[in-house]
Amino acid sequence: MTVAANVNQCLSTIKGIEAELSTLALNTNVEEASRVFHETMLVIDEIKLDLEKRKNELEVKEPQYKG
């Protein structure tokens, strides 16, 4: 598996985790749990943005990795 494929797979997984955390935050009746899920989702979003940035850098610097 290429670096680009690994990054894309990781990015896809992170997006799924982010979506699941959002669902958990909305569906829980426990205010503290909802807050923790939401805060964790925000951290995951930052990681996702960093990874997307890295993916774009890879595609620019290493044309063979364009997906």
Rank of each mutant, 00 (worst) to 15 (best):
D45M: 10
L21F: 08
E31D: 12
F37V: 02
K53R: 03
K53F: 09
T40G: 09
M41C: 10
R35Y: 15
E52C: 08
N56V: 10
K66I: 12
M41T: 00
R54I: 12
A5D: 09
E18C: 09
L51V: 03
N29H: 15
E59Y: 09
G16E: 05
E46A: 00
E18W: 03
S22P: 05
V7M: 05
Y65E: 08
L49V: 07
E18T: 03
K15L: 06
K48L: 01
L21N: 01
N56P: 01
K15H: 12
S34I: 04
T13F: 01
L58P: 00
Y65A: 12
M41L: 12
V3Y: 00
V30Q: 08
T23S: 15
E46N: 10
V30C: 09
R35V: 15
D45C: 07
P63E: 02
Q9E: 12
L49S: 04
T28F: 09
C10A: 12
C10S: 10
L42Y: 06
G67M: 04
L21T: 01
I47S: 10
K48P: 09
E46M: 05
T13R: 10
I47W: 04
L26C: 10
E20H: 14
K55D: 01
V60R: 05
L11Q: 02
G67A: 06
E52R: 00
A33W: 12
P63Y: 03
Y65M: 13
L26R: 08
I14P: 03
D50R: 06
E32T: 04
L11I: 06
T23D: 13
